[in-house]
Amino acid sequence: MQIFVKTLTGKTITLEVEPSDTIENVKAKIQDKEGIPPDQQRLIFAGKQLEDGRTLSDYNIQKESTLHLVLR
């Protein structure tokens, strides 16, 4: 499924993921596309910060959901 990741600069990254993918996994995909190390990434969905060990389905993230990427 496709999800979108919006950065603070207003750029939107499109990722191909599975509901069973972990947040860690998603961060690795963002690193592949954008070169941002996962340890600098914070992903936010519905106002919650997403934890590395959880999966997209844990957070009920469905196709075409938009996550927000904050760098630390």
Rank of each mutant, 00 (worst) to 15 (best):
Q41C: 02
K33P: 02
E18Y: 07
I30N: 01
K63A: 11
A28N: 07
G47T: 12
V5W: 01
G47S: 09
K33E: 15
E64M: 06
K11F: 11
P37S: 15
G53M: 08
R42M: 14
I44M: 06
I23H: 02
I3L: 10
T14N: 06
F45S: 03
V26E: 00
T7I: 06
P19F: 14
P38Y: 15
Q49V: 08
E24N: 07
E34L: 06
D39A: 10
K11L: 15
V70M: 05
P19W: 09
I61D: 00
P37N: 09
Q62R: 06
D32L: 12
N60M: 09
Y59D: 02
Q62P: 12
L69I: 04
R72F: 08
E51H: 11
Q2S: 13
F4Y: 12
F4V: 07
Q49Y: 14
K27H: 03
Y59P: 00
D39H: 15
L71A: 11
D32M: 06
T55Y: 13
F45Y: 09
E18R: 10
L69K: 00
K6N: 13
S20D: 09
T7A: 04
Q41W: 05
A46E: 13
E18D: 15
V5L: 09
S65M: 06
I61Q: 00
L56F: 04
E51A: 05
I30Y: 03
A28Q: 10
D52A: 09
R42H: 15
K29S: 11
V26M: 10
G47K: 04
L71G: 08
D58A: 11
T7M: 06
K27S: 02
L50M: 07
I3M: 08
T55D: 06
K6A: 13
D52H: 14
Q40H: 07
L67K: 01
E16P: 08
T22H: 15
L43F: 06
P38S: 15
K29T: 05
G53K: 08
Q49A: 12
T66Q: 05
A46R: 07
D39E: 15
L56A: 03
M1Y: 14
I36R: 03
G10N: 10
D32N: 12
S20L: 10
R42N: 08
V70H: 06
Q62E: 13
Q49H: 11
E34Q: 11
T66W: 07
G35P: 04
V70L: 05
L69P: 00
R42I: 12
Q31I: 03
V17A: 12
G47R: 10
T66R: 06
